[in-house]
């Protein structure tokens, strides 16, 4: 039984957890018993149950599938449920802070509504007509690229780590962030979609703010190659449309739209 499996050696987890809200707070130290296989989220739950019932934390699936428990563990943006305690030095004090880019609500919980507002601005999927036989035909090689983007669990760690908004709050109105570049890429490369979002990408979404320093890719728990597979290909498409007169000329000669 799970509850009987407390490590017999009396191992302990030493944690330093942010407590407080936007008006102020501090890192507070907690110590709880450590069991085999524990992840950081388990330890946070243990702190809740034993020391601080009101410790605010978001979580749902505890299996890396829902993307709720984003935080900064020893300064690195991570999912708490996928950060195993045995990846740290025994006896090390582990610091857990809320994600920095978004307004702090309380303890480890932040207001991520920025992302939900940005999601509303994305021009939605607009499919072309069905085939003559009434089916929708798409081929695996055409959707492989897009399926990678659909793996996104919306943990917003990429948004959190992106310095464009993390360190420059004033860019928030004019920058959609890596999550939504992935989303737009998934629509632009969708074999059935007919809409055109390049103008949107360049202007409202602020693709040009990205200086491809790749932190979004580094922190993605789904290992989506955000920069190489979505942002740069979108930048290249924007170049073709807006910065490459020769491509435009060839396109016009070839009678193609893009």
């Amino acid at each position: 039984m799970a509850e009987a499996a407390v490590a017999g050696n009396g191992a302990e987890a030493k944690m330093r957890v942010w407590r407080g809200d936007a008006s102020g707070g501090e890192f507070r130290d907690y110590t709880v018993p450590l069991q085999e296989g524990m992840v950081v989220l388990d330890v946070i739950h243990a702190i809740q149950a034993m020391h601080a019932g009101d410790l605010a934390v978001r979580w749902n699936c505890k299996a890396g599938k829902c993307g709720s428990c984003s935080a900064e563990v020893n300064g690195k943006p991570r999912l708490m449920c996928m950060t195993r305690m045995n990846t740290f030095e025994p006896g090390e004090t582990i610091t857990v802070a809320p994600i920095k880019t978004f307004p702090l609500i309380r303890d480890l919980v932040t207001d991520v509504s920025y992302n939900y507002e940005k999601a509303k601005t994305i021009p939605p999927f607009k499919p072309k007509p069905k085939e003559a036989d009434g089916t929708r035909r798409m081929y695996q090689e055409d959707i492989d690229r897009v399926q990678e983007f659909h793996k996104c669990i919306e943990c917003y760690l990429c948004q959190d780590v992106c310095h464009v908004i993390r360190d420059h709050d004033d860019n928030k109105p004019s920058f959609a962030g890596p999550r939504f570049f992935v989303r737009v890429a998934s629509l632009e490369m969708h074999p059935l979609d007919t809409d055109d979002r390049l103008e949107f990408l360049r202007n409202e979404a602020g693709l040009g703010f990205c200086n491809i320093t790749k932190c979004c890719t580094e922190v993605c728990p789904e290992h989506i190659k955000i920069t190489d597979n979505s942002i740069i290909p979108m930048k290249e498409r924007v170049v073709t449309r807006f910065y490459d007169p020769i491509a435009r000329l060839l396109g016009a000669l070839g009678g193609k739209k893009s």
Partner: peptide, 17 residues
């Protein structure tokens, strides 16, 4: 099929279904 109309991408057969 309605989900597909709304943008879902299911794995495909060789015939594209």
């Amino acid at each position: 099929l309605e989900l597909e109309e709304w943008g879902a991408l299911f794995d495909r057969t060789d015939e594209g279904l």
